[in-house]
Write a protein that binds this DNA or RNA. Structure first.
Lengths: 152, 152
DNA sequence: CTTGAAATGAATTGTCC
DNA sequence: GGACAATTCATTTCAAG
């Protein structure tokens, strides 16, 4: 995979930090011509290295006070219908099938611990085929800024 | 917290989906005046409900073949220095302190299983005060689009 | 306070080197 | 890939409802 070079990595690193900078501004920062940067960004979007532009929302400001990860074991025969049921649960943010002690790891958000508890017991715990759940309530989270480099 | 209304929620939902739409375009979609939308977006950024604009990168295209979650138990006395050591490990994407069976959940990325294994054993496992680790390799992940609504 | 439109300024595209 | 000119678009401002 030699499709992307160092400049591409710099572009996605910068856009990860601030996806709203204008191309002319970024071109000055990176010391490349604006025309070049326009075609690069367009290419990165076209090749899907940039999947999408988005925003990061501070959910604590709109009443989301609790985030948690939940480990789940399930009946393998009911895999698909469980996945569908999880998709329908609005408090679930992501669903990962994993190796190891659990079959699935979920990321959840809720207004408070009580609501989280209700979701865990009343909604997720009652999905047919879910054998046991274990909840890890997030106390503090640190996200790192992604820095991309050429690796191959 | 009655600071944000339905229009604000629509704005952040749309910008989550596409953080690159122009304000005039969005104003047509939402049926509100551009002037209104300009002041709204500015306010949302100022109030930090929109933490930042960013991009989503498809890491599989640049050689990141494996993602995993790792549960860790640690010596509580060495909490801070462990956190620092984890911050320095480039393969670690996020660090969450949690309740339950583990003290910390990490998100990791690596080029392949071998590299993940090396990071787990040689880097993370050798940090002083880390008592045991358990790795959950991601086989398949589903992320949901966030949809924000007024909740209070 | 809200809307819309006009004026400004900046971003984007295309062309040529 | 780089420079520039032509164009299009976003943004601010202002005036009227």
């Amino acid at each position: 995979m030699h499709k992307f070079d160092e400049l591409d990595m710099k572009i996605i690193t910068e856009l990860s930090r601030d996806g709203n900078t204008s191309v002319p501004h970024l071109s000055k920062k990176l010391g490349v011509n604006t025309s070049v940067l326009y075609s690069r960004v367009k290419r990165l979007v076209k090749k899907k290295l940039i999947k999408k532009f988005t925003i990061v929302v501070d959910e604590s400001l709109i009443g989301i006070g609790v985030r948690a990860t939940m480990g789940i074991n399930r009946d393998p025969k009911l895999k698909d219908q469980i996945h569908k049921a999880l998709l329908k649960t609005p408090e679930i943010v992501s669903i990962s099938e994993v190796t190891g002690r659990f079959d699935i790891l979920l990321t959840l958000r809720a207004r408070n611990l009580e609501e989280l508890h209700t979701v865990a017991i009343e909604k997720i715990g009652k999905i047919e085929g879910i054998q046991n759940t274990e909840t890890f309530v997030e106390l503090q989270k640190t996200d790192k800024d992604a820095v991309y480099t050429v690796t191959e």
